[in-house]
Design a binder for these strands. Structure first.
Length: 896
RNA sequence: GGGCGAUUAACUCAGCGGUUUAGAGUGCUUCCCUUACAAGGAAGAAGUCGCAGGUUCGAAUCCUGCAUCGCCCA
């Protein structure tokens, strides 16, 4: 057949764009992603649901690539793999986006009813929602799209409400007035986890308060002088000599001229500021505690939007930060501002809106966590659920040990509405019910007033924290709350692996574990793999607001999805941050190209009308076949072990190296046709193809597209024989031969030594040389002689002689490999100085090596204490090195 | 303030049970369009493994302290 035609048929470069969509559709349309319960063992992963209106970023790329690797490998191993995709309604973020969009249209949220607003929100969600899931398909994510869920769809909504009611009935949910984190921008309460503390440069203001009926003053220090207007006490440490006489006196708050007591409490740090603390119970958590203890008045001076209310008396209607400036000026004017100190302190910001958080006393719904969290705490500490890397157990433990009640109500509309119905203004004038009818009935019962009408009760306006729905995710995607004994939940739960970012360990992972034990009595997953954070070359976290993140879609267009996947995985061991560089994707693309060309080469050699056997054994008489098989199985074992311990990048490195370094650089070179221009003999090619197929299987989870593409080209396949469902190669210990590997490695080293001689003496690879190999013993000589063809194949050689104790020809370049001498006669062109220099350098290196070995062996402690095996190894090394040195010295003598 | 982690070649990172005078990719130098692949091949240079102690026969690896950087929590 005409070889040049075959060459033209297959392009020189792999073009990912032309195959990715084709194979993705093929997999999807043939149901390879879909799972139904059956007899096989299940392997389940639930996706960490991204925000419904979110856009794919590099963190998602990393995270979902890893999930896909796990899922694809499990599928190939014959498990019933199920990867459930979906999105999260992200109350605050989505509501903020909708509000913003409406504002552009001249509509404010206040103009709308709840129902109207929700209509807009759903519209927005349907328009922008799920883009991110589309984008994941480009990456190759093998999710079961028929199972796509959204946290706000009806049955998930219902399940969340059920759980609220259940927890309320079990006594875990309560309503209370407590200090909470208030986001004045979103105008809602937040949980502690949603507050980000940032250290900043700020000012500590020293302000003096007059003591009533005296000419004395007391100086307090504060970073938030505007809250002075709501002060209801001044506090000092009881052990503080400076202020002892002031305790019990009355201080006068500046501006408002309020009279407040000077109290004593150990809480006050004498070293901090002036050692004298102003107390504002309504606007600071600690102040609130002290206020409660000492029965201080609570004065709330802020409106929900962060402006000052009438209660403040001054600066009413001004924003809190503007008020701060104003009061500083006024205090200065009154001569009450005595000092301004530069300092750093931590300021809390809203995780979603980035507004400065106001601690605020507010009536909210809480979930009591101490008892609820106990099984979740224990079962991570005792490794029933394993964290990768395990170091994250420490922070989990710390959080669990200091767990605080969870504020679960949000003053928003986008989310599951709290099923509490009020019939009066009293704090306990409510009932918990699924429907208005049920609520009315309960309210009548509770009040004993049968005349209560529907118009007398109203439902709580607030919704639940988004995480209060996503903590049920591994259960609700299988409808395990409403139908706790359904076939799917029983089959898929507990799920297997969860892949997520350490940032949401408390928000989400910990809470899922809590919910899993509470509602299913069982863990939600067995392993949690924490990915690193993707950063840019300046170590900044990649984010949309910084604009330092490449567009993943463009990246995939440029390097191919496989290339980007490899790029992401290459330098991302679990839990370590990865500095993303496009170069990594380039490396991935180049690897795809290498594979493509290996495939191209093998294909070029195929004869039309020939069916290459799939189950042909290796040629047992051929060292190269035995070596390749041995390396293959060694790698299978290594990858399996790496994957079990979630060392995914290590596994990828292993298959990368096996394909590139072993298969392409050596195996293919050695199966090439003996005569240029002719094709590889059938059986030899069949064996090469078989090896290549095994390599493609091992690579498939990492690079799904190119592997499927070449797999389908190698032979005609039926649909059910697709790469995606090919069997993962089984490890066979008997295929691994240390002996074959050692011999082949020796041959490789001899060839490298010859190449080095060529390079040093400027011989072109095409120049024919004579090669003399002088083995130290007959056994080695015979082994090498049996494989003469390998030297002939990889080097242009006129005459090759392999014997024991060959004499060094004059004017030749030499090298010694593992006691075997190599001579390349240079026909008078040898630069003797250069050759002597080469040999001396090698002697120096070996002498240094020998010295370090002798150091060990001359040490009695080592010889007596180290394991015999280790000592023997050193002895062998010493003997080998001495032999090599002796031979090199002999060579040098002849040169001098 | 408490905790966790990092510090290895010019750059980005591996190095899991202690033992080939430390590995990969990129970059660099030299040579090569050799029967697939220049997005490639061959050869090579390049590191007292942050600092100081300690344990040990032996430490990049374990322990302690310090320095610098990062993250988490209060």
């Amino acid at each position: 057949m005409d070889r040049s035609t075959a060459l033209q048929d297959i392009p020189k470069h792999f073009d990912p764009g032309s195959v990715e969509e084709k194979w993705y559709d093929f997999w999807k349309e043939n149901g390879f992603f879909h799972s139904e319960p059956d007899d096989r063992e299940s392997y389940t992963v639930v996706i960490p649901p991204p925000n419904v209106t979110g856009v794919l970023h590099m963190g998602h790329m990393l995270n979902n690539t890893i999930q896909d690797v796990l899922v694809r490998r499990a599928r190939m191993r014959g498990k019933n793999a199920c990867w459930v995709p979906g999105t999260d309604h992200a109350s605050i973020a989505t509501e903020a986006k909708v509000v913003q969009k409406l504002r552009k249209e001249g509509i404010t949220k206040a103009d709308l009813t709840r129902e109207e607003f929700l209509e807009h929100a759903w519209e927005w969600t349907e328009e922008h929602g799920g883009i991110i899931l589309q984008q994941l398909q480009k990456l190759g994510a093998s999710c079961d799209w028929e199972r796509t869920r959204f946290t706000l769809e009806d049955d998930l909504y219902e399940s969340v409400i059920d759980c609220f009611i259940e927890l309320y009935n079990r006594g875990y949910i309560y309503r209370g007035k407590r200090m909470i984190n208030w986001d004045p921008e979103a105008q809602t309460a937040l949980s502690d986890e949603e507050v980000i503390h940032r250290e900043e440069q700020s000012k500590l203001y020293h302000v003096r308060y007059r003591i009533k009926n005296s000419d004395r003053w007391v100086t307090i220090a504060t970073t938030r002088p505007e809250t002075i207007l709501a002060d209801t006490g001044v506090c000092v440490n009881p052990g503080d000599e400076r202020y002892r006489e002031l305790i019990g006196e009355t201080a006068i708050i500046p501006m408002v001229e309020r009279e407040v007591p000077v109290i004593a409490d150990d809480y006050v740090d004498m070293e901090y500021g002036t050692g004298c603390l102003k107390i504002t119970p309504a606007h600071d958590e600690n102040d609130y505690q002290i206020g409660q203890k000492h029965d201080l008045e609570i004065i709330d001076m802020l409106k929900p939007d962060g402006t000052l209310s009438e209660t403040a008396e001054y600066y009413v209607g001004e924003d809190r930060f503007k008020a701060r400036e104003l009061i500083i000026a006024d205090l200065q004017e009154r001569n009450q501002l005595v000092d301004v100190e530069e300092m750093t302190n931590k300021v809390g910001y809203s995780e979603r809106t980035d507004a400065v958080i106001e601690p605020r006393l507010s009536l909210q719904w809480f979930c009591r966590m101490d008892k609820l969290s106990r099984p979740a705490h224990e079962n991570v500490m005792n490794d029933t659920i394993q964290f990768y890397p395990a170091k994250f157990k420490n922070s989990y433990n710390h959080w669990m040990e200091n767990i605080r009640d969870w504020c679960i109500s949000r003053q928003l509309w986008w989310g599951q509405r709290i099923p509490a119905w009020y019939y009066g203004d009293g704090r306990d004038d409510y009932v918990i019910a699924r429907t208005k009818e049920e609520a009315l009935e309960k309210a009548r019962e509770k009040t004993g007033d049968p005349s209560l009408a529907g118009s007398d009760i109203h439902q709580d306006e607030d919704v639940l924290d988004t995480w209060f729905s996503s903590w049920l995710w591994p259960i609700t995607v299988f409808d395990g709350i409403r139908e706790p004994d359904n076939e799917e939940i029983n089959y898929y739960y507990p799920t297997d692996d969860l892949v997520t970012a350490p940032e949401i360990m408390f928000f989400w992972v910990a809470r899922m574990i809590i919910a899993g034990y509470e509602f299913r009595g069982e863990k939600p997953f067995s392993n949690v793999y924490y990915t690193g954070i993707v950063r840019d070359s300046q170590r900044r976290k990649m984010s949309k607001s910084l604009g330092n993140s490449p567009d993943p879609i463009k990246l995939m267009e440029e390097y191919g999805a496989d290339g980007v996947r490899v790029g992401m995985l290459f330098s991302s061991p679990a839990g370590n941050d990865l500095l993303f560089e496009e170069q990594l994707c380039e490396q991935g693309r180049n690897f795809a190209n290498k594979i493509w060309n290996a495939f191209r080469f093998l294909s070029m050699n195929k004869q039309e009308d020939t069916e290459y056997s799939r189950d042909l054994d290796i040629d047992k008489t051929n060292l190269v076949d035995r070596w390749m098989l041995s390396r293959l199985h060694e790698t299978i074992a290594g990858i399996n072990k790496d994957m079990e311990s979630f060392r995914i990048n290590e596994a990828l490195h292993k298959i990368y190296s096996l394909i590139w370094d072993d298969f392409c650089d050596w195996y293919i070179e050695l199966i090439k046709a003996d005569e240029p221009g002719t094709d590889i003999p059938e059986q030899r090619l069949a064996r090469g193809l078989n090896f290549f197929e095994e390599l493609m299987k091992l690579l498939h989870p990492f690079m799904p597209f190119i592997t499927e593409e070449v797999w389908q080209h190698i032979r005609p396949r039926k649909t059910e024989e697709a790469m995606i469902v090919a069997s993962w190669p089984a490890f066979d210990q008997s295929a691994v031969s240390a002996e074959d590997q050692a011999l082949f490695s020796k041959i490789q080293r001899i060839i490298s030594a010859v190449r080095n001689i060529r390079a040093e003496f400027k011989l072109s690879p095409n120049d024919n040389i004579d090669l003399l190999i002088s083995a130290g013993d007959e056994q080695t000589a015979r082994a090498l002689r049996n494989n003469e063809w390998i030297f002939q194949k990889l080097q242009h050689i006129d005459t090759l002689e392999i014997r024991v104790d060959l004499a060094k020809p004059e004017t030749s370049a030499s090298a010694v490999v593992e006691g075997t001498e190599i001579f390349v006669p240079l026909k008078g062109f040898v630069d003797l100085d250069k050759e002597r220099e080469r040999i001396r350098k090698e002697i120096d290196r070996l002498q240094g090596f020998l010295k370090s070995i002798e150091g060990k062996l001359n040490n009695d402690g080592f010889v007596n204490n180290a394991p015999e095996e280790v000592v023997q190894r050193e002895r062998d090394k010493k003997a080998d090195t001495e032999t090599n040195l002796e031979k090199l010295r002999g060579i040098l003598r002849e040169l001098e």
